[in-house]
């Protein structure tokens, strides 16, 4: 089974040289720490920055320079800054190659829910609806089951949707899965020490298992 760092490390292997990548809040943010040597990418922060650098050293925080999670950050040589309309212009026109974000639920046809729990949580969708509606490639980083032990990989989402038929791949503490073109979660890899049976038990939606399922290499 993977911890959050493990999920981030596995997702980092999906990133290719030359990619522009948008990372959501939470586990996705950690992915930036594990980009393989020799892979050059540019991180987009939707509040208006390309080329997001690391957190500043203590005492060097700049209140005017934050990421979309409102954390203090830095720029890098080659960074650029723009307004919110242009930021979503480059997202909508698919200049951003990969979006990695968290989810509360994913359905077997690639629908995603991650912005609202009716009557309980009203924080808003932020940029998530724009990102999932336009991104060419969307990877979800999340736990396989919720705190109540219920599967988050479902036939249909029960929570209000963020986007429809958009998720391509899911990385959880148990497995790597992709959304099959005809619907269903196709199991691609098992986390170290996790059996196919354990993954089957934790998956409520249609799970497609074809042949031997290899263990993840991290």
């Amino acid at each position: 089974m993977l911890d959050k760092t493990g999920i981030a490390k596995r997702i980092a292997k999906e990133i290719k040289d030359g990619y522009y990548v948008n990372l959501g809040i939470g586990i996705p943010t950690l992915v930036a720490n594990y980009i393989p040597e020799g892979i050059n990418i540019v991180l987009q922060s939707e509040n208006g920055l390309l080329g997001m650098g690391p957190f500043p050293f203590e005492g060097e925080e700049d209140p005017d320079l934050i990421n979309a999670g409102k954390q203090t950050i830095t720029t890098l040589p080659g960074s650029s800054i723009f307004d919110s309309a242009m930021s979503f212009g480059m997202i909508r026109s698919q200049k951003v190659d990969l979006t990695i974000l968290g989810a509360m639920e994913v359905s077997e046809n690639g629908d995603i829910a991650n912005w609202k729990i009716p009557g309980k949580m009203v924080k808003g969708m932020g940029g998530a609806m724009d990102l999932v509606a336009s991104a060419k490639n969307i990877i979800v980083a999340m736990q396989h089951v919720n705190k109540a032990g219920e599967s988050k990989l479902l036939s249909e989402c029960s929570l209000p949707l963020t986007g429809v038929k958009c998720v391509k791949k899911i990385v959880t503490e148990l497995a790597v899965l992709e959304i099959a073109s005809g619907g269903g979660f196709r199991l691609l890899e098992r986390a170290p020490g996790v059996s196919v049976e354990e993954i089957r038990k934790a998956t409520t939606g249609k799970l497609i298992i074809e042949g031997e399922i290899p263990e993840m290499q991290i």
Partner: peptide, 18 residues
């Protein structure tokens, strides 16, 4: 919001900007 005192229209961020 939850008590109904405040009206809220949540808009996707890119839609808001555009």
């Amino acid at each position: 919001l939850l008590s109904g005192e405040l009206e809220v229209e949540l808009v996707p961020q890119g839609t808001l900007a555009t």
